[in-house]
Amino acid sequence: MKAKQNWRLMALLLPAIALICVLFLNPLVGVLIQSFVGDDGFTLKSISKLWTSRLARVVLERTFWLAFTVTVICLLVGYPAAYYMSQLRPRKRAMITYLVLLPFWISILIRTYTWIILLGREGLVNNALQWLGLTEQPVQFLYTNFAVHLGMVQILLPIVILPTVAGMVNIDGGLIKAARVMGASPIRAFWSVFFPLSLSGAATGGLICFILSLGFYVTPTLLGGQKSLIIANLIDLQVHKTLNWGFAAALATALLLATLLCLLIFWLATRNRPEFATGGLSR
C-alpha cells in the first residue's frame, strides 16, 4: 500500500524529470561527447589541453577565485541584513523580503548596464567625486575586478540573504534565552549559539552563490577588463571565435566537474551535522 502511494507520488515528478532529460541531460551528454570528438572521431586532445594549456588553468583558477571572493563578500554583506530581517515580525519581514527580491524583476543585463552608467569615467560616481574635489582625474572603476565584484554581489546578494534568513528564522528563540540565563551576555549568546546555528542557512546561500558565480558570463563581460574574464567567457571564445568546440566542451565539462566537486565537499563536510540536514531551510 505504502509502496503504491510512493509510486503515485513519484509520478508527480515525471514532468520535471522529462524536462530535465530533454533540456538538460541531452545537451549535457552532447557536451560530454563533444569533448572527446575531434576532426577524425575520438580524441583525447581537447581533454588533455585542460592540463597542458596554461590559459585554461589560469582562467579556471581565476574563475574559482572570483566565485570565492564574491561569495565571501555576499556573506559578509548579506549576513547582517539577514539577521536584521530574521528579527522582524513576520509581516514586516515579508515586506522586506519583497524589497530584497525586487531586483529580480529587472534583467541581469539591465542591472549590469546600470553599473556602466554609474561607474563610467563620466558617470555619476566619478562626477560626484570630482565635484567634491576628491579626485582630479576620473577614477577607472569600470573594466576592473572591482566593478565585476560590485555587479556580481549586487545580483547574488538576495540569493545569499534569503536562505540565510530562512535558517535564522528557524532558530528557536528559546535557545538564546537559555544561553542568556546560563550566563552568556547578548554578544556571547549570539556567537556561541545563534551564529553556529545560522551557519547552515548561510552556507546554503553561500554554496548557491558560489556555484552561480562559477557560471557567470554577462557581468564579467560587460564590467570587467580582460583580466576579469572567466571560464564562461573562455568557452564563449572557443565556440564563437576559434571554433574549437572540442576544447569548449572540455572546458564546460571541467566546470561541471568542479561544481560537482564543490557540492560533494559541502556534503561531506556537513553530512554529520543535523542542522545542515535540510540545508537549514527547515527543521
Binding site: D172, G174, L175, K177, A178, A179, V181, M182, V193, P196, L197, R273, P274, E275
Partner: peptide, 11 residues
C-alpha cells in the same frame, strides 16, 4: 532554568 522545550543547543 529548565524549559518545557528542553532548549538544548542542537550543535
Amino acid at each position: 532554568m529548565v524549559f518545557q522545550s528542553y532548549s538544548l543547543f542542537p550543535h
